[in-house]
Simulated assay, not measured.
Amino acid sequence: MIRLVGILVGLGFAFVSLLAFVVGAYNQATEPAAETAEYAFHEPAHNPRGGFSFDGLAPRWDVAQLQRGYQVYKEVCAACHSLNQVSFRNLADLGYTEEEVKAEAASWLVPGIDPNTGEASTRPGLPTDRFPDPYANEVMAAAANNNAIPPDLSLMAKARHHGSAYLYSLLTGYQEPSAELAERFPDSVPGPGLYHNPYFANLNLAMAPPLTTTGQVTYADGTEATVRQMSQDVAAFLTWTAEPSLVDRVSMGWIVMGFLLFVTILAWLAKKNVWASVKPRRED
């Protein structure tokens, strides 16, 4: 009797759970989602005019652009954002010579230990060092940025959907909230210390526009440093930091596909040759 009651109770729980699932699934499928400011006013990321050199089926790195992007990161972004998954020696992949890499590394101060006192200090960087964090800890980072800790940018292009386009769109997308947004969703209007950007997930972020005027960076190659140009260059650089093997990986993919096609044709010809002398059986 007790066993029968236990079975019935279990079946009852199973039935209720199944019923709740079916009702919830039906409501989810039939009821329209509540309209939110993020849904109504969020803009999809877009590539700059002409796109990036590493897009498409035959990608390549524009080395000059990557060097410009590194310059933008160094002179603008590095004040708040770390790049702690990248070493100075990796800059050799951007066309810098060994001496230039050493000079670039030495232009940065990295955490070290004073050999005389054993206390924490800073020293010029070495090619084997990674890019230093601009803040000693997260508490300091939050205090300097309206309680918002600036994320590390090493893998940002992979951490966001359409990463390269997202970074470009975000940097060029700062604007005043529209009157329609203020009327329909007054709570979504940015408050003190926040800035409206329709390409950001919740439309408002704590980072002030980092690129604001033409000539904010003076490019060594003479390229005019407009806001869109700087945004495109640093987006390309951060794509390289996130996926330095992107171009090689696509090239290897084409080689593998060509090899597989060759092997398939070879196997088909071998099959034809092996069975050439065998006549199909005829049925009377």
Rank of each mutant, 00 (worst) to 15 (best):
E224A: 07
D248Y: 05
E224Y: 00
Q229A: 09
T218A: 12
L211P: 08
Q216C: 09
D248Q: 15
T213W: 09
L261A: 14
V227N: 03
V217P: 10
S245I: 07
M257Y: 08
Q216N: 08
R228H: 12
S251A: 14
D233R: 04
G215H: 13
L238N: 07
Q229G: 08
V227D: 03
Y219K: 05
R228E: 15
L211Q: 09
T214L: 04
T223A: 15
L261M: 12
S251K: 09
D248E: 15
D233C: 06
F259R: 03
D233K: 06
V250C: 04
T213A: 15
G222R: 00
G222S: 11
Q232E: 14
W254Q: 14
E243I: 06
T239M: 05
V227M: 10
R228Q: 14
G222W: 06
G222M: 04
M257S: 15
E243T: 13
M230R: 06
M230G: 06
T213I: 14
T226N: 06
F237R: 01
A225S: 14
F259S: 10
A236E: 00
V250E: 06
A225Q: 00
E224H: 00
S251M: 03
E243Y: 02
M257V: 15
M230E: 02
T212Q: 15
Y219N: 13
F237M: 01
S251I: 07
Q232W: 03
W240L: 03
G222V: 01
E224M: 10
G215V: 09
P244Q: 08
T218M: 14
P210M: 08
D233T: 02
D221L: 05
D248L: 05
A220L: 14
T226W: 05
F259M: 05
G258I: 00
L246I: 10
I255T: 12
F237T: 01
S231V: 02
V250K: 11
D221M: 05
G215C: 14
M252Q: 12
D221P: 01
V234Q: 01
M230V: 02
L261C: 07
M230Y: 04
M252H: 09
V247N: 07
A220H: 14
L260E: 13
W254F: 10
L261I: 09
T214C: 08
L238I: 00
R249H: 08
T212G: 12
T218Q: 13
M257H: 08
F237I: 01
F259D: 10
V217Y: 03
W254I: 06
D221S: 07
L260N: 13
V256H: 10
V227G: 01
A235H: 01
V256M: 08
G215R: 00
T223W: 03
L246Y: 12
L238K: 04
F237V: 03
M257G: 12
T213P: 12
G215W: 11
S231Q: 07
W240I: 03
V234M: 08
Q232Y: 04
